[in-house]
Amino acid sequence: MTESKKPVLETRNLGITFGGLKAVQDFNIQIFEGELVGLIGPNGAGKTTVFNMLTGVYLPTVGSVILNGEVLNGKKPHQVVSSGVARTFQNIRLFKQMSVIDNVKAAITKDIKYGMVDAMFRTPKFWKVEHELTEKAMDLLSIFKLEGKADQLAANLPYGQQRKLEITRALATDMRLLLLDEPAAGMNPTETAELLECINAIRDRFGISILLIEHDMSLVMNICERIQVIDYGLTIASGLPEEIAKDPKVIAAYLGE
């Protein structure tokens, strides 16, 4: 990581209060191109809240989110997506009553260049775009080996594959920055290892940056290039994995004072 590079995502003194509760304060982070950064902290520290502010679900009370020099605050979630940020959720949120492939196709919103008239009359343009969408979706599904399940209902997938489908759907948005909220939650060690491999594969293939929330310390220490730790909404440490592991404040936060 060279400091002269411009960050993909940058936040400046980001903060939000719910009623009297200061859920997140003075949150500053920089993520550079192709980087994998970890965001960790105890339960209720404010990690998911940070994601919600980055993606336009919550409007920050103070501070700003800057993506490639463009201010994201106040943008709606779908506008944030079209700026190139996609996410997954801590509690899986799929389109349960839709097929696996439609889950992915629904998220490819950028290059659909047909309108109502094409849809009503099934013009050649319609078929061409739909074929392209199907091809692209199948291609993305093959990353997590889900192509065999394309026509199944998303609700019928086993838990691990639902997590994978959610990541696939995020990839379908053509993002440059991927936010993963505890992707390994509820997975067994083999599944987690497999997920790790896939995350690396995705980075190599798409060259995207990733911000990862994770409770599994070994996973975070293994794959993250940098880690930022928050507790009670405040950043208590940030740096390389080795530094974080030794940081007394982090140890105190995790073991409880």
Partner: peptide
């Protein structure tokens, strides 16, 4: 069509739909 996909996505999970780039 894309319209059907988008509105079914909104039905199933509106937050996820907007987080997938759908203008709900």
């Amino acid at each position: 069509s894309k319209y059907g996909r988008a509105i079914k996505a909104i039905r199933d999970d509106e937050i996820a739909a907007s987080a997938s780039g759908i203008n709900t």
